[in-house]
Design a protein around this nucleic acid. Structure first.
Length: 449
DNA sequence: TTTTGAGTTGTTCGA
DNA sequence: GTCGAACAACTCAAA
């Protein structure tokens, strides 16, 4: 029997893994992980710690057979194949710009030594580039994409038996643990993921439509870190959904992840550039004063409680509730008039689930530069959004301790208490009504041309 | 080719 | 306090 390499990247799981099953069908499997500097480019300790723990958990499940090697992959993977005598490398395809370029390079290097790179699975239910209009062109609006996405068939790869080879003498060791200041904020590993999903879905799926918008509740699935690194595959989640309305909304969130991956696949430049070029003309502030405002924002000291709570939740836990992500993003773009890229980079540094397609296109959606011609007048009011979605104020109190004793009536507008406002909490850094008008004026200028 | 309807997540104002 | 209208124009998808 020949030896095949399962090159683990963002598919850190044994269940329903096409790359693993493909490798197993080809021979005795050596699971390989290559540490690359770019792999976690821009990632802070939370995402690094989660990745490390997820790999450790996988290593436990394969009897310590996981081999770590130092990158770059273009050198490390072919060399490893020579060392173990493998003639095929099996992967879950990467569709983001940097990963695609890397894989093409590795494929060429492998071919030079007679080794074949097998793209056996994707991190998505439907591979990016698959859902298209009748004329073959990609879709640019979510709802039509979703309707077509639902018509595509997919099937699981199952959980067939795998024989792992023992090459631990070749393991360079998971040394990247050194220097990590943080523990993973979310328990990593497949069994932890499924414990969470089973507990959450049985308790909260039928209330998902409403509860998902209340950041004080445990109303969202918390599957995003696991999806990011393929600890669970979205196929496995769809398999567990029923026909209830809560499940339908959850399915649609899965589809949003696939939609943004599809958009980025077709237009890689949109990772950091406006999807709509005409929005390049909108005025954004980048001077010294803007940088100072950004620094205040990044510390969670804007004086708007829901915004500060969100930023501080992310800084403290590596995760931010989705509703609050939108409020925070809207504040940066529409109240501070900063480039959405500043916020996207900030999020990518701290989020345990930071994914270039979902994060950056989410930011573009908020900024009105991306998919969907968002009405230019859609400007979130951070005070009323707080009151509407955190009506108890418990979310704010949890992450902004200075406001712990403020009553519910004033929790989202403590400056309204006047002299009774908590001394340790800053006054609003900008006047929302004035900045809203400024944002409307800037957007109108672009659309009116 | 032309036409038509629609487009995740909002806010404010005035009746 | 509630509720509907107004807030623009444009692009996309499909008929």
């Amino acid at each position: 029997m020949s030896t095949s390499v399962w090159w683990v990247r963002r598919d850190i799981r044994l269940g329903d893994n096409g790359a693993l099953q493909s490798a197993a069908a080809a021979g005795t499997v050596v699971p390989l992980f290559v540490w690359e500097d770019n792999l976690l480019g821009g990632a802070g300790d939370f995402r690094r710690a989660f990745l490390f723990d997820a790999l450790e958990s996988l290593d436990d499940s394969v009897g310590r057979a996981l081999i770590y090697r130092d990158g770059p992959a273009v050198a490390a993977v072919p060399e490893f194949c020579r060392l173990v005598g493998a003639d095929t490398v099996h992967i879950t395809e990467d569709f983001a710009p940097w990963g695609r370029a890397r894989d093409a390079e590795v494929e060429r290097a492998l071919a030079a030594s007679g080794v074949r790179l097998v793209r056996a699975d994707t991190p998505y239910v439907i591979a990016p580039g698959t859902v298209r209009k009748d004329d073959g062109t990609p879709l640019k609006v979510f709802t039509p994409f979703y309707k077509r996405w639902l018509t595509h068939r997919w099937s699981s790869f199952g959980d067939g038996a795998v024989e792992f080879a023992d090459h631990r003498d070749l393991c360079a060791g998971p040394r990247r643990r050194e220097g990590l200041q943080t523990a993973s904020p979310v328990p990593a590993g497949e069994s932890a993921a499924w414990r969470r999903f089973d507990e959450w879905s049985s308790r909260a799926m039928d209330r998902y439509k409403d509860d998902r918008n209340n950041p004080a509740l445990d109303g969202t699935s918390m599957m995003s870190p696991y999806l990011k690194f393929g600890v669970v595959h979205p196929r496995q989640l769809l398999d567990r959904l029923d026909a209830t309305s809560g499940a339908e909304h959850f399915r649609s969130e899965i589809a949003w992840r696939e939609f943004y991956a599809d958009v980025l696949f077709h237009q890689p430049r949109t990772a950091w550039e406006n999807l709509q070029p005409k929005m390049d003309a909108i005025k954004v502030d980048t001077d010294d004063a803007a940088r100072e405002r950004f620094a205040v924002f990044c510390r969670g000291e804007t004086g708007y409680p829901i915004v500060d709570a969100g930023i501080r939740q992310m800084l403290a836990t590596g995760w931010m509730h989705n509703r609050v992500r939108m409020i925070v993003a809207s504040f940066l773009v529409k109240d501070l008039h900063l480039p959405w890229q500043w916020g996207a980079r900030f999020f990518m540094e701290h989020l345990v689930d930071g994914d270039i397609a979902s994060n950056n296109h989410g930011w573009q959606w908020t900024a009105g530069t991306g998919t969907d011609a968002a009405p230019y007048f859609r400007v979130f009011n951070p005070t009323s959004q707080g009151a509407k979605f955190d009506p108890s104020g418990d979310y704010v109190r949890r992450f902004v301790p200075e406001l712990a004793d403020v009553d519910t009536k004033h929790i989202h507008d403590p400056s309204g208490l006047g002299l009774l406002a908590p001394a340790g909490y800053p006054a609003p850094m900008v006047d929302h009504a004035a900045e809203r008008n400024e944002a409307l004026a800037r957007y109108k200028k672009v659309s009116g041309q």
